[in-house]
Computed example of a mutant assay.
Amino acid sequence: MTGVPASAAGGSSQAQGAGRAPGGATAHSATGASADTPDAAGTPGPTGRMVAAEGAKPARGGKIAAAAVNQASVWNIANLLTMLRLVLVPGFVALMLADGGYDPAWRSLAWAAFAIAMITDLFDGHLARTYNLVTDFGKIADPIADKAIMGAALICLSALGDLPWWVTIVILGRELGITLMRFLVIRYGVIPASRGGKLKTLTQGVAVGMYVLALTGWLATLRFWVMAAAVVLTVVTGLDYVRQAIVLRRQGRAERGETLEETEE
């Protein structure tokens, strides 16, 4: 027994804590002060242990909840649209080559599958960025789905004799080459999609869609010029991405060299 009431002892210790705070202001609230205030025996009181434990629980619970959200986010709407586009690829090929590949009815159904794939390509990326639904699966599957549907359409068209093989080679070579280049320079930074690249994608989709349909007359002439524009945009934007990659690599290596020099000093 110290002869001092517990309330007085608590008040004294709080006053001392307030005196130690910078500028004379109380650093903690009454509950927070009791967490750091020893009892009469000079050891941390049970209240302090309880507050500390309660303060730690939300942090652990938050990590568990965040992990659960990340695991569940794989099945978000953006990824489901990407999966749908992947599933449409074999269906599109089957419709495109049905009955020898020249039946207007089957080609119309193939065009519908291609159009759905192109539309989902526009929406899944927008939804992922707008609603923070970006996942590792989406980062990998989305470009694969894009290249798969476009590559399948171009190869089918060239195999049927509707489109010269050199057009297919130029477009697919550019797409695969730029994708590989992005991975090679990812250590230095990310090459953002340009307006020209987005226009290229749109023009390619319209041109290939027009070739998938069994068009005749002036529409057949129009699709030729649309495809020509798509090829030009494909080459020009591809060269621009190469230029950006070279600049990004030089800047990254220069910054790394400066960092090494500062470290040696």
Results as ranks from 00 to 15, higher is better:
A141P: 08
A68E: 14
G125M: 08
T216Q: 13
V51I: 15
V206E: 03
A15M: 13
L109I: 08
A56G: 10
R223C: 04
T259W: 10
A98T: 07
V170L: 08
A56E: 14
L248R: 01
R243L: 04
L154W: 02
P58F: 02
A110V: 12
A41W: 07
P38D: 12
E255M: 15
G32C: 12
A9E: 12
G238S: 01
G11M: 11
T179R: 03
A145K: 01
L222I: 10
M150C: 07
V93Q: 04
R60I: 15
T130D: 00
G10H: 06
T221G: 05
F137N: 02
L122D: 08
T37H: 01
F92W: 01
G209I: 13
I149T: 11
I119K: 04
G177I: 00
T234N: 03
Q16A: 11
V206H: 01
G23L: 12
N76E: 03
S194C: 10
V236I: 10
A30Q: 10
A30Y: 06
R243G: 02
I77M: 13
E255G: 13
L180I: 03
G177R: 00
T259N: 14
A128V: 14
A18C: 09
Y241F: 02
A56I: 08
F92R: 00
P90L: 05
D39L: 03
A68K: 09
L109K: 08
W166D: 09
G189F: 00
S34Y: 10
M1Y: 12
V167T: 10
A21V: 08
I119M: 09
S194A: 11
P5V: 11
A148M: 10
R107M: 08
G125I: 08
A94R: 09
L97I: 09
S34G: 14
L84Q: 13
V74M: 03
G205Q: 02
A230V: 01
A6R: 08
S29W: 05
M50G: 10
R256M: 09
G205W: 00
R107A: 06
M50D: 13
I119G: 02
L222H: 07
P44I: 10
T43K: 10
G32P: 06
A72S: 12
A105N: 06
S13L: 15
S73A: 11
Q244I: 07
F114H: 07
L176S: 05
V247H: 06
L122S: 11
V235C: 04
V89P: 03
R249I: 06
H28V: 15
R60T: 15
R250Q: 13
S7M: 10
V51W: 02
G19Q: 04
L215W: 09
D240V: 05
P38I: 14
V89N: 03
V208Y: 00
G161E: 13
F92K: 00
V212F: 08
A105R: 07
W111N: 15
P164D: 14
W75D: 11
M150K: 01
G55Y: 04
G238V: 01
Y102C: 03
D240R: 01
F123R: 01
D240N: 05
Q16P: 02
A193I: 12
M96L: 12
R253L: 15
G23V: 13
R253E: 15
G55T: 14
V167K: 00
L180W: 04
